[in-house]
Nucleic acid binder design. Structure first.
Lengths: 210, 210
DNA sequence: CATAAATACCTCCACGCGGAGGCTTTTCTG
DNA sequence: CAGAAAAGCCTCCGCGTGGAGGTATTTATG
């Protein structure tokens, strides 16, 4: 969960749906901002369409004019929140691929509710009839894995990472560990998220550092 | 997710709630069995109290006589399904701790709907007002990590696992990776769950096997 | 075997949810 | 400036959970 620069399509109106009268786009953004507020205050299941609508002073059905479903709205909220995080973080580019991941994870758990939202949406994406979230996460996982695979391969070529493992598999493993550990941390904050994830750096170090 | 022999409390009536006239216990089990069927057929959100009740030929309120809430019922369903899996698997005891985990993960994804149920419940456990699932997973994660930590420490002492890493952290990492990878696999079955998880064995092998 | 308690349900209700359909107003475009 | 498209919003619907209050039925026990 969370890997910098995987979604740089500023143009694609993944947010919302139909045409763009520019006023509608602004309204969409307004809805998302409110939704984020509601979300951080009341959690995932407290974020009903009705409650967001209440915060905006309209009826819940108004929101469905901008988003096809609650699920789609929540996905948009996640994208929006994450995009903020990433852009406030664009200059940093640590040496190792694993460090990028560690940093993203740590920043994730600092945004209240973000991990919870992520979990909720992942669970939703596994439902048979889910559309928005399934498409989103399928694509997302693939993009994140691909980016990380590339970085790992580069690190291997540079001699920074042992080369007796398949970078694609390690990438999947790291993403999985990062996701899973954020959840464990939410339930048990005594876990040292940063140091635990850093273990990967040790495990992936080349055999003889001289 | 899924690690053998973490819950051998056959006596504790985590399933359901009140007294045990022995007939009631049987009925509870019957409900859980039906619930699992409904779940594998209709997914997590299709498993409403009403639908399970329908499958049993009773009203939804009857179920609330045996379980305090839908959430508690779902937790019981998960425990039940997992207990089945584990008992059908009790004889096996692979050499390495990591292999135990790999096996559990592979068997998990073979039970239809189990990973989805797990994800749903984990997401629920992060909700502010969740009770049953939060208690269950907090305890569960701790138990699984503890068991795995112990196994890893043993492997380290036996020279089967490198000893320059903290077994407790590696345990958390492995559990996280296993959980996360099962989800990735559900969304992208071309991922080789078994081999990817096995990467840990390579990463954790001692430096010089000689 | 009587009887009190626990069990095993049911019906009905309160409330919240997401979503479909419809209606008016605003805005862009030829 | 016409009219199509988009925006903006509401009312109504069905389904969900949880619970209150009721009534048979079963069970343990003296």
């Amino acid at each position: 969960m969370g890997y910098v620069d995987t979604m740089t399509s500023d143009e694609a109106p993944v947010i919302g749906r139909s045409g763009s009268y520019a006023k509608g786009v602004a309204r969409r953004r307004e809805i998302l901002d409110r939704a984020i507020e509601v979300f951080t205050e009341r959690g995932a299941d407290g974020t009903s369409l009705r409650r967001i609508a209440q915060a905006l002073g309209v009826s819940h059905a108004a929101l469905l004019h901008y988003f096809d479903s609650r699920e789609q709205l929540l996905v948009a909220v996640y994208e929006h929140a994450e995009a903020r995080r990433d852009e406030a973080n664009a200059q940093h580019r640590p040496a190792l691929a694993t460090d990028v991941m560690v940093r993203a994870a740590v920043q994730n758990v600092e945004v209240p509710g973000l991990v919870q939202l992520y979990s909720t949406l992942v669970a939703a994406s596994l439902e048979a009839d889910s559309t928005a979230s399934k498409a989103f996460f399928t694509h997302r996982f693939e993009a994140v894995r691909a980016a990380l695979t590339e970085d790992l391969a580069r690190d291997q070529a540079a001699g920074l990472v042992r080369d007796d493992v398949d970078p694609a598999r390690i990438a999947a493993l790291i993403v999985a560990a990062s996701d899973g550990l954020q959840i464990q941390w939410l339930l048990e904050p005594s876990i040292d998220l940063q140091e635990t994830l850093r273990s990967f750096t040790t495990l992936l170090a080349p055999p003889q550092p001289s």
